[in-house]
Design a protein around this nucleic acid. Structure first.
Lengths: 342, 342
DNA sequence: TTGAAAGCGCTAACAA
DNA sequence: TTGTTAGCGCTTTCAA
């Protein structure tokens, strides 16, 4: 038995290569190997080269769970999104993920659910990973989940909405302003009888309320409202128009809470031979790619969802690295995009 | 100074509550507290109650990074997906995530890119987290990334394709069979002049090749092919039809590599007054929700993308918990859904 | 610039 | 059933 026998792994070891092995191979101490990988400017060129050679030879990949434990920095960001396959939120998540990746952070994904209990479980699972930041789609209402998150001290960004009482940082826009602006926009075009086709979510609710208030202010009649519940499909848009025409045959302009619903309304209108926008005007929300690609192209409210993701990434990274975020509340605004359907 | 002074945290401590604190509060040893939380049946009812009370009182959330390090089990699954916002892959990821959540696993998301270097960086970042499993959208070609993944020993599922040489587990279907089946399906309907509108990806490529081979076998003329590159929008579908009609004015049936392209082709055809399917038949791929909701409804190839996610979750969890997966290669198949466009 | 010692918060292994 | 001890693989702290 020589002194050069391969290191005996203890019974508990996972058997994988460790920094200690690489350091031994390079003839340096583990801490020097660590520095060579994490802060190379603190290590002399000669040792740096030796360590890199050892890493290349062995294919060593540092264990970040160990690093996270020792340094209290996980380089992990958790995002919570609603579970809607084709939702407008995907653009945000992709932009967020791309920016995080460039800064060597990882994204953990959690799907929020409508059950409060599951939501708490999700938040607890997230906090258990000790992420350096949490991205929330929407704002988190008071409750046990919010309390836990606040208590954890983890930096949080809430998004897609505005509130005077955010947990921490906030990147969004005003749904009230949108509702009012759309009402005024349509009223100025001369429409007088309005319809609302909307999903059952809190943000759509606030847009709807502001829409109605703006009409009232103009002494215009209140809109006929069709609530499609949780569903957000083209199909439910079609059915909504059927119901709408039943309840209000002479409706002139419909504001939909998503582009998908707007497309459904458009298709049903076309199937019935209604001319768009002469017989019926349609306004969507979200401005997803194919709203513009329909014919006639659908007018919509554009949200810069990628920008929300990019700013969120920057803020979360800044906070993770101890920097102060000067403008923790950002209103990214929106734009009414007028196309052929209004 | 009494013996009951609050525990002094060392300078290195993150300051957060630890299992040790909870154990002290409950009057038990840390390992008993650990067992109370992880394997409650090994602990007496009396101590269990005490520990739970202490947890509830303090709001303690275990640090899973520490747990992962000690147990070599991260309860983390990494998924690699292409970065296409509205892709058909989202259904798979959502199903995967939902199933993992129910089993108390977390999902880490990585976006694959077209650059091999970035792909390696991504894989290295993933391996660094020591996930208990890796989900890959598609199959990983030979290269450094694949070598690293194999060397890591982490269970892997490749998906959405079939190959005789998977890294480990495989859940997919045959793109060759689809190409041939679609060709035969359309040929049997009497179409004779074909078109192919397709994105530049390997799987679409194999469907296209099989499509052509099947036509050749039937002594039918080869299709006119329009390659849209990376783009997958409705807009590029529309433009493809313009080019197609330019190159082959009397094309009768077009097979598109995605439903989005098919919708574009459909819209452009309608704009030109072509009757569907009399003047032109259209077949999509993916069978996303709105293919069925267009009018005319678009025929497509249905893939059960949720099932892929569910099976992948089950397999990965089985392997993470030391169980053997008996059928590591699964062909989930597909179905040609005939609607109004063919 | 380099290293030794100690410890991050948890669990495996062993013993009582 | 409960506890003691000794790590998991890394980084912080302090000293040379």
């Amino acid at each position: 038995m020589t002194e050069f026998a391969p290191p005996k792994k203890s019974r508990r070891s996972s058997g994988a290569l460790t920094l200690r092995d690489v350091a031994a191979l390079a003839g340096v101490s583990p801490i020097t190997a660590s520095r060579a990988l994490n802060s190379p400017d603190q290590v002399s060129a000669a040792l740096l080269k030796k360590v890199h050679a050892a890493v290349a030879r062995t294919g060593y990949v540092p264990n970040r769970a160990a690093g996270a434990l020792a340094s209290s920095r996980s380089r992990l960001i958790a995002a919570v999104t609603p579970s809607t396959v084709m939702s407008v939120f995907m653009g945000t998540i992709e932009a967020l993920n791309a920016a995080l990746f460039d800064a060597d952070y990882q994204l953990m994904l959690g799907q929020s659910s409508y059950s409060a209990a599951r939501e708490e479980t999700l938040l607890e699972a997230i906090i258990g990973r000790r992420p350096d930041g949490v991205f929330l789609t929407g704002i988190l209402p008071p409750g046990k989940g919010r309390t836990m998150l606040v208590a954890s001290g983890i930096p949080v960004v809430e998004t897609w909405d505005l509130t005077p009482t955010p947990i921490d940082m906030l990147i969004g826009f005003s749904h009230e302003d949108i509702g009012a602006d759309v009402a005024n926009f349509l009223a100025k075009k001369g429409y007088k009888r309005f319809g609302l086709v909307r999903a059952a979510d809190a943000r759509a609710d606030r847009r709807a309320r502001a829409f109605k208030a703006a009409l009232a202010k103009r002494k215009l009649p209140q809109p006929t409202e069709i609530n499609v519940g949780e569903s957000r499909s083209i199909q439910s848009g079609r059915q909504s128009l059927i119901k709408m025409l039943d309840a209000a045959p002479n409706v002139e302009a419909i504001f939909c809470s998503s582009d998908l619903l707007a497309i459904g309304v458009l298709m049903e209108a076309q199937a019935r031979g209604l001319r768009i926008p002469d017989d019926l005007a349609i306004m969507g929300f979200g401005d997803v790619q194919f709203a513009a690609e329909m014919s006639p192209a659908i007018s919509s409210v554009r949200i810069n969802s990628e920008e929300i993701g990019r700013i969120a990434a920057r803020y979360l990274i800044d906070r993770a690295e101890g920097r102060v975020v000067n403008e923790p509340i950002v209103n990214v605004g929106y734009a009414i995009i007028e196309r052929d359907s209004t």
